[in-house]
Simulated scan of single mutants.
Amino acid sequence: MAAKDDLGRVGEQRAAAYLSGLGYEVLDRNWRCPAGEVDIVAARGALLCVVEVKTRTSLRFGHPFEALDDKKVRRLWRLAHAWVEAHPEQAAHSRVRLEAIGIVGPDPRSGALEHLVDLR
């Protein structure tokens, strides 16, 4: 496995633990469909949150959130709707929201973590 893949996996583990600590229930991780992949799907009450995780060792190539352009956000919305359609048992979650977690640092277990709660 490439170092980049390890970095992303560890960053996603930290993000899931962070969300759990805030009271989110992590429902799914690395869910895939023909349209792509969702890093984390979590519930908080009636809210279903689709969370994109971006992990970087430094800001050398820009802040992690800079990768979340309009095209990526539209794709995340399509993936969110595909996840909901594939999981009708989760119908109790009446609203869907996109979120993002960015982690920057040489070790994602201790790097700076930022959480965008409502990605539009």
Rank of each mutant, 00 (worst) to 15 (best):
M1A: 14
M1G: 13
M1D: 02
K4Y: 03
D6I: 12
L7D: 11
V10Q: 10
V10I: 14
G11D: 11
E12I: 03
Q13P: 08
A15G: 05
A16W: 05
L19Q: 02
G23W: 11
Y24N: 01
E25A: 15
V26Y: 01
V26S: 07
V26W: 02
L27Q: 10
D28H: 05
D28Q: 12
D28R: 06
N30I: 02
W31H: 09
W31R: 09
C33Q: 13
P34D: 02
A35K: 12
A35S: 15
E37S: 11
E37C: 13
V38T: 08
V38W: 02
D39N: 10
V41Y: 01
V41D: 04
A43I: 04
R44A: 06
L47A: 15
L48M: 15
L48S: 09
C49V: 15
V50A: 01
E52L: 03
K54T: 01
K54L: 00
S58R: 10
F65L: 03
E66Q: 15
E66D: 15
A67W: 05
A67Y: 05
D70K: 12
K71M: 02
V73Y: 00
V73K: 04
R74E: 14
R74F: 04
L76C: 05
L79D: 07
L79G: 05
L79P: 03
H81C: 08
A82D: 15
W83V: 05
W83A: 06
E85N: 08
E85T: 11
P88N: 14
E89T: 04
E89F: 00
Q90P: 00
A91M: 02
A92C: 12
H93I: 00
S94E: 10
S94L: 14
S94V: 14
V96E: 05
V96Y: 02
V96I: 13
R97E: 11
L98C: 03
E99W: 00
I101G: 06
G102T: 05
G102E: 09
V104Q: 00
G105M: 12
G105N: 11
P106Y: 12
D107C: 08
P108L: 08
A112L: 12
A112S: 11
L113P: 00
E114F: 03
E114S: 11
V117Y: 03
L119E: 08
R120A: 14
R120Q: 13
R120E: 15
